[in-house]
């Protein structure tokens, strides 16, 4: 079979899901946001819930997430996405509601909203992108910045004595009775991307059961903020982020 005959509709094995729009993503080259977006969009696509899904975008790099997800979306104030999602879910309990938030949004300015939405067991999906830095504002320290990690507001590295410790908010919310499924994934290799999608799909399926909050952390790179090439940043993430933020399920529904 010649190559020309391979590219036919019946041989198509992978293309961008239509739940993502055709807009060019504004993210930096190699940034994990795009892949995380796409996995969530694919999960929505495969479950056939595009018309029943309402998303909430945060403030931060993914502030424009609503340009890329072809679902109804609301843009929340910084950190308030879980409260906005609560408002949506309480008046439209049959819809699938998700928030998509970065580490500054979710684990610093919005900690109260995160903890309390999880503690109430709001039937929403919280997608948490943790790259340990404030990307949009130019690489400042995040609540999840690792000890010793340099940023523009920790230029000599994060000193935990004066700047606090990197916050494992995912382990924290897993302690709350309101959360039903809590997991930490990544999107830097094909295998990890597939696992992330599986987790997101599962989380959306669980939402139908009204069992509580599903929380999916994606440890991601920030090549620009970390001042590395995308490939270097993925390696650095494996060597430095994963030991502190180990991948895997943290809380799974009891059988």
């Amino acid at each position: 079979m010649s190559e020309n005959t391979i590219k036919t509709p019946e041989n198509l094995v992978y293309e961008k899901t239509s739940v993502m729009t055709d807009r060019v993503l504004h993210y930096c080259p190699g940034c994990g946001h795009g892949t995380a977006h796409r996995m969530l969009a694919e999960a929505i696509d495969e479950l056939g819930i595009q018309g029943d899904t309402i998303g909430v975008a945060p403030v931060g790099c993914s502030v424009l997430a609503y340009y890329y997800f072809d679902v109804d979306m609301q843009e929340a104030a910084h950190g308030r996405a879980p409260a906005v999602a609560t408002g949506i879910k309480r008046v439209l309990p049959e819809k699938y509601v998700f928030t998509y938030q970065g580490d500054g949004d979710l684990a610093a300015i919005g900690t109260a909203e995160t903890i309390h939405a999880c503690n109430r067991g709001e039937n929403i999906l919280v997608v948490f992108i943790n790259n340990g830095i404030y990307g949009m504002t130019g690489g400042q320290m995040a609540p999840t910045t690792l000890e010793g990690m340099k940023s523009s507001t920790s230029p000599r590295g994060r000193d935990v004595k004066t700047m606090g410790n990197p916050l494992k908010i995912t382990e924290l919310v897993a302690q709350l009775p309101g959360t039903y499924f809590v997991t930490r994934q990544s999107v830097h290799t094909p295998a990890n991307v597939r696992k992330t999608k599986k987790a997101l799909k599962k989380a959306l399926e669980y939402q139908k059961l009204n069992k509580g909050t599903c929380f999916v952390e994606v440890v991601a790179n920030c090549p620009s903020g970390w001042k590395m090439t995308p490939v270097q940043s993925n390696k650095w993430m494996e060597e430095n982020m994963f030991p502190y933020y180990p991948l895997g399920d943290i809380k799974v529904p009891e059988k």
Partner: peptide
């Protein structure tokens, strides 16, 4: 090169969804 086996690994990790993959039946 022409060693592509249509595994879609490239497309799956692509942050910008620029790759479409085909594989013969």
């Amino acid at each position: 090169n022409s060693e592509c086996i249509g595994c879609a690994n490239c497309a799956i990790v692509c942050p910008d969804a620029v790759i479409t993959v085909y594989r013969e039946k």
